[in-house]
Design a protein around this nucleic acid. Structure first.
Length: 618
RNA sequence: GGGCCCGUAGCGCAGUAUGGAUAGCGCGGCAGCCUCCUAAGCUGUAGGUCAUGGGUUCAAAUCCCACCGGGCCCGCCA
């Protein structure tokens, strides 16, 4: 079955071969025209050809002939008076596509790759509740995971838990030194640790020298596995378990938890150090400001201290060790165990330090993706370059995204006085919006809406939950990765316009029609009744694999969200203009019904990748 | 001082990877559409020197240079 991705590749080749046959070379491009009226694909090759020949058009005429010969029967080829060569998919091809979708009950997707890849996302410090900035990381990472999986990859999702960092030491101080209770009445434990303990400790630390001393002591104990470690481990687990509930509520799936303490105590940094030394990538400085330090030297004259003159490793060194472990550059002697059962029915594994079951928990891949805030990009790029210098076959890819800030108005409502139009969130000062809070607010708003709009709905709370999740995931996904995202509570709670619920609503509409009218007959022949709105919808559906490839090749999950929105708009246009229930002609009715079915199948598929809940009614 | 990212309609955003045909969408404004598969919807309308200046090109929101405004990174910290 030819789909858009195949068509694109075939046409590219057809044009290239045609040029070759004519003995000319040109760096042409094949693209989707801005206006559908011009065709489904266009090429600029003619403009480039005007540099050759005598300008009498003979060369272009020959080129068209050559391309027509090679393009095959499924597209028509026209030369437009402006000079573009336009390709239009023939109705019979769309017809066949539609029949295939109905017959196979889904998009005829061919695997883009079957390779193994790992992806790390979320990685929230286990000392507080997830806020909306963490949600951006989680949702982007989760959609990348789902996209890769849909594209045929063998994907494993890692969640890194920094259980030895200063933030953990902070809240330990709260419980051990400042008398915070370990049993907050009526408050989720992660919220309590973030809102009360962490904020309280940081306020105390500002003016308390002795407390700061005690924190350094705790930190050292944590890194060396001292007496405080078992208390810390219990505390971290309690908070992490609450965080995971939030992650799962956002639709996340993980395969394995990785712990910073396991990498420290397991000696992975030593192994990485040996590897770097063997490859000649680090040197011990004997003079200058880095005297006595082991320094990583980059290609462009950059220097990064990895080991301090007192022999301890810096944070980046641990990151480098983790990267090496992920990619199989280091020997894996972790143990593995089941940590929890996830809502999607899969087991979440965890590494263990000692006496393990068989080492079947993790298989390294040649490619790994890390999802990080763009402020960390320079350091991660350095890690990527270092990995590449160790082993060219390994690929360390970075998905970086802009920060999430609060609008001035939203910050002000939370009692924070801010200058300028935005306010950056701050865990230490307590200025942030928790994911749980945002979700329950959205759910409340959505429930009111359902009760207003559809009082007879069967399970209104279920619909409200689905709408809330759809709204939050889509609002994160639709935005360009590089852009600062400003969260304004008032607009975040909207459920119409360019939102997740808008898209969810179109699928609910499609499902309603299928419930009322029934399933389409299989022998669909739409060719003769194909109207513009039907064609536009079908051709958009046809492009699914092309879009998915863009997403996995370029790490651009937002492209899929924008595509879903386009599809939804196209469906709504079709829905408004073409009746099915009242259509008297049986063949026409069946054709339209088949399009609705194709929409249900493919949009349902896309919802699975975006992690948007599919709602039968709204 | 060195580097990265953003700037498109009153507001929020697509489009920039791979230059191409009248620069799209949402909210808000104005005017309409429920006896008809759910109006969380649809139609029409007003609203743009694509921050600015130069350059390359048959062609620039898109590429290059400069510059203005905003955000961020550059520690023997984590």
């Amino acid at each position: 079955m030819v789909t858009f991705l195949r068509l694109y590749n075939d046409l590219s080749k057809a044009i290239a071969d045609s040029l070759k046959a004519l003995g000319v070379t040109a760096d042409f491009s094949l693209f989707q025209p801005s206006d559908d009226g011009h065709g489904d694909l266009s090429t600029n090759v003619y403009f480039l050809l005007s540099k050759f020949g005598n300008g009498d058009g003979a060369l272009a005429d020959n080129l068209i002939k050559e391309i027509k010969q090679r393009a095959g029967p499924i597209v028509s080829v026209e030369r437009h008076s402006s000079g573009y060569i336009n390709f239009r998919l023939n109705p019979s091809a769309l017809d066949e596509f539609l029949r295939t979708v109905i017959r196979e009950a889904g998009f005829p997707m061919e695997p883009i790759s079957r390779q193994r890849v790992t992806i790390e996302h979320t990685a929230v410090n286990p000392n507080k509740a997830l806020h909306v900035g963490h949600a951006r990381n989680l949702v982007l990472g989760d959609v990348m995971y789902r996209s890769l999986k849909r594209g045929g990859w063998d994907v494993e999702v890692l969640n890194y838990i920094d259980d030895t960092g200063v933030q953990i030491a902070d809240i330990i101080l709260g419980f051990k030194e400042l008398g915070f209770s370990l049993d907050p009445a009526g408050k989720k434990f992660d919220h309590y640790c973030g809102d009360d303990v962490y904020v309280g400790v940081n306020r105390a630390l500002e003016s308390d020298e002795v407390l700061r001393e005690k924190r350094s002591h705790i930190l050292r104990e944590l890194e060396d596995g001292g007496p405080i470690s078992s208390f810390a481990a219990q505390l971290v687990k309690r908070i992490l378990d609450e965080e995971l509930k939030t992650s799962w509520a956002l639709g996340a799936h993980y395969d394995l938890l990785n712990w910073e303490s396991h990498f420290l105590l397991g000696g992975y940094w030593r192994d990485m150090f040996e590897l770097l030394l063997a490859k000649g990538l680090i040197v011990k400085e004997t003079s200058g400001k880095y005297q006595g330090c082991w320094v990583l030297t980059g290609d462009n004259g950059e220097n990064k201290v990895l080991v301090r003159s007192d022999g301890t490793a810096v944070y980046t060194a641990k990151d480098l060790a983790y990267a090496g472990w992920k990619l199989g550059l280091l020997n894996d002697h972790m143990g593995y165990d089941v940590y929890a059962r996830q809502p999607d029915g899969t087991n979440l594994l965890t590494t263990t330090l000692g006496g393990s079951s068989a080492n079947t928990g993790f298989r390294a891949a040649d490619e790994t993706i890390i999802v990080i805030g763009q402020e960390q990009r320079p350091i991660q790029e350095m890690i990527a370059r270092t990995i590449e210098r160790i082993d060219k076959r390994k690929r360390y890819r970075i998905l970086a995204y802009g920060a999430v800030a609060l609008s001035n108005d939203t910050a002000a409502r939370m009692g924070f006085k801010v200058e300028g139009s935005i306010a950056h969130m701050s865990g230490r000062s307590g200025l942030y919006i928790n994911v749980d809070d945002l979700l329950s607010l959205l759910e409340k708003t959505a429930l009111e809406e359902v009760e207003n709009r559809n009082p007879n709905a069967i399970d209104k709370p279920e619909i409200a939950r689905g709408v809330a999740l759809g709204a939050i995931r889509y609002s994160i996904l639709r935005q360009d990765l590089d852009k600062l995202m400003v969260l304004d509570m008032e607009s975040a709670l909207r459920l119409d316009g360019d939102t997740g619920p808008y898209i969810q609503y179109t699928l609910a509409r499609a499902k309603k029609i299928l419930r009322k009218v029934g399933e389409p007959a299989e022998d669909v022949y739409i060719e003769r009744v194909l109207s513009a709105e039907e064609r536009n919808l079908l051709i958009l559906l046809f492009k699914y694999d092309y879009i998915l490839k863009d997403v996995v090749d370029n790490l651009t999950p937002n492209k899929l969200a924008i595509y879903a929105r386009k599809l939804a708009v196209s469906f709504n246009t079709f829905y408004e203009r073409r009746r099915i229930l009242g259509e008297p002609d049986a063949q026409t009715r069946n054709s339209r019904l088949a399009i609705v079915k194709a929409y249900e199948l493919i949009m349902g598929d896309i919802f699975g990748v975006l992690g948007l809940p599919v709602l039968e009614e709204m």
